[in-house]
């Protein structure tokens, strides 16, 4: 069920770290679970008892082994998947107005092949209204931001996979969403573009103060970008650890060399693989 009011506001207040100024929850998962019926008959528990509160203007990363239910959590928040148990709550406007409330970048680019890159970026606008001149110039700005200004009139199949994903990132920002859900947005990109876009994301965030929930496979990326990192355990996917990232901002590529950065990365790595000295420890 998706509630119109915070289901467990009192609970989330209690979770707030002390000493911080009052933070306003915008996303809340309360014991949310998803069970899929499978063709074989035995139900598959994709997500179990997941509780997490995300506050306005925060960047939270979701990390965990492949298949642990990260995409499923994102799909729940995007309204594409109903939780089969527990509650989720999303703040913001009364009515969900498409990408202006919650925008998503899927794990795969998902551009519409019959629209030019420009029209793909404008798609979330077109669903709601006729694009205006302002929308078009905003789309052009975003294409510049992701380095695709020369590709605006191309068709998606003329773009490389990485370029397509960058276009879909531009698309997610077109309506200036309050909440941005990103499912491994940089996973398919080359290392250089990836680094570039990570820093761009930090800039975008500094400027627009969006709430961002980011799924990633890269621990380094999670620590670099996030205020908090939620670590999920393998199936059934549940919250294993919630790591506060207090590496000072603004962060840049050089932050990765800081001792606190390395310590936090190690903690997350330990959460996922268990503490170990060598690869032998893996089974433990």
């Amino acid at each position: 069920m998706i509630h119109a009011t915070p289901a467990r506001a009192a609970h989330s207040e209690a979770e707030m770290p002390s000493g911080e100024p009052r933070r306003e929850p915008i996303i809340e998962l309360a014991h949310a679970g998803v069970i899929f019926a499978t063709s074989k008959g035995d139900p598959l528990v994709a997500v179990e008892d997941m509780s997490l509160t995300i506050y306005r203007e925060e960047i939270v990363s979701l990390v965990g082994p492949s298949g642990c239910g990260k995409s499923t959590v994102l799909r729940m928040l995007a309204g594409l998947q109903q939780p089969t148990s527990g509650d989720i709550w999303i703040g913001g406007g009364k009515t969900r107005r498409g990408f202006s409330e919650v925008a998503i970048v899927f794990q795969r680019p998902t551009l519409l092949p019959w629209l030019s890159v420009m029209d793909n970026v404008l798609y979330p606008v077109k669903v709601l209204q006729r694009p205006t001149k302002a929308h078009r110039s905003r789309a052009m700005e975003l294409l510049e931001l992701v380095g695709l200004q020369d590709m605006a009139e191309r068709m998606p199949h003329e773009l490389s996979g990485g370029m397509q994903q960058r276009a879909s990132i531009a698309r997610s920002l077109i309506l200036d969403p309050k909440i941005l859900l990103m499912d491994e947005p940089f996973g398919a990109l080359d290392a250089l573009t990836r680094e570039d876009l990570q820093l761009d994301l930090l800039d975008i965030h500094a400027e627009t103060r969006k709430t961002i929930l980011l799924v990633t496979h890269s621990i380094n990326e999670a620590v670099l970008l996030s205020d908090r990192v939620a670590v999920m355990s393998a199936r059934p996917g549940r919250m294993q650890d919630l790591v506060e990232i207090d590496v000072p901002k603004p962060r840049g590529a050089e932050s990765a060399a800081r001792p606190d950065f390395l310590a936090l990365s190690q903690r997350i790595r330990d959460d996922i693989f268990g503490p170990r000295t060598g690869r032998k420890g893996r089974r433990a």
Binding site: L80, R97, V127
Partner: peptide, 14 residues
């Protein structure tokens, strides 16, 4: 129609 495209339309509020 690919499922991802339908998902996109739904999140976009179509």
């Amino acid at each position: 129609t690919p499922k991802e495209m339908l998902d996109l339309a739904r999140v976009a509020g179509a």
